[in-house]
């Protein structure tokens, strides 16, 4: 499989390293955190970075490092659960509907409509619907990824179908499922992995932007985005608050971008 070879390129290694670093911090970090993410420490109101609070404390006296470490988990959930779920549903929809013309036209139009809403506006509208929160973020991301992946797969289905050997196989009695499994999926695997990495980085953005607008993760629970928002509302008094979570968002997105770039470069070469 070429994908594994692509991932050993230096750029990809750097990307994997960055993502792995954040992943590790998110999984292990909360166990090592000096305080609980919701623990309010008496008298420690908005103190700057110090040996006892590496990233300082926030407006309600909580240790920002501990909150950051536990906030990573939500972003990991968004990146490694919501995106793959959306991708899987999208791939299945694309595969199944592309084969039959009526279903294909119908789903493509629905995808058009969904993609036509700018993501954040869709998110604002949805949060008015079901209230702000983690689920809102998850739904926005899943709803966004379904058409993205659905279209990608649909294109390769349409291309593969026209190939002479597939036509021959069909004449010989091969069913659509066989064609999809044997020919379509392997062919679209590379663009799909590239898209997956891109979508994951976009998901981090969406979480951060939604929390920034106040329609994402809600107090008192931390996420990288809500921590950045907390920091930015106190930008002049405590510029240190947002730095840690902001750096982690950068690292995570950068890592995912590097992976997707090296995958697509390898694909092109």
């Amino acid at each position: 499989m070429t994908t594994s070879r692509q991932l050993t390129r230096p750029k990809a290694l750097a990307g994997l390293g960055l993502v792995g670093f954040v992943l590790l911090l998110g999984l292990v970090g909360p166990l090592l955190a000096p305080y609980g993410p919701l623990e309010q420490i008496e008298g420690a109101n908005l103190v700057g970075p110090s040996p006892s609070h590496w990233l300082g404390t926030d407006e309600v006296n909580r240790d920002v490092l501990s909150r950051t470490l536990s906030g990573i988990r939500l972003d990991l959930l968004v990146v490694f659960v919501a995106v793959p779920v959306g991708a899987a549903i999208g791939v299945l929809t694309g595969l199944l509907t592309a084969w039959w013309n009526v279903a294909d036209v119908l789903t493509q139009r629905i995808f058009d409509v969904v993609l036509a809403f700018p993501t954040l506006i869709f998110a604002i509208a949805l949060s008015a619907f079901i209230g702000p929160g983690v689920w809102t973020i998850a739904i926005v991301i899943v709803a966004l990824e379904i058409p993205v992946f659905g279209r990608l797969v649909r294109t390769s289905v349409r291309t593969v179908r026209e190939m002479p050997y597939v036509e021959a196989a069909q004449v010989a009695g091969a069913g659509p499922l066989w064609v999809l499994r044997r020919h379509v999926l392997p062919n679209s695997l590379e663009p799909l992995t590239v898209q997956l990495a891109v979508s994951m980085s976009v998901a981090v953005f969406i979480e951060a932007a939604m929390s920034f607008l106040g329609i994402g993760v809600q107090a008192p629970n931390p996420s990288l985005g809500s921590l950045i928002k907390d920091g930015t509302t106190l930008m002049y008094d405590a510029p240190f608050l947002a730095l840690g979570p902001l750096a982690l968002v950068l690292v995570l997105v950068l890592g995912l971008l590097l992976i997707s770039q090296s995958l697509s470069e390898a694909h092109r070469d």
């Binding site: 951060a208 932007a209 968002v249």
Partner: peptide, 10 residues
């Protein structure tokens, strides 16, 4: 790459 990775609000 930083331009791509930096959230707009940041």
């Amino acid at each position: 790459t930083i331009g791509l990775a930096l959230p707009t609000f940041a």
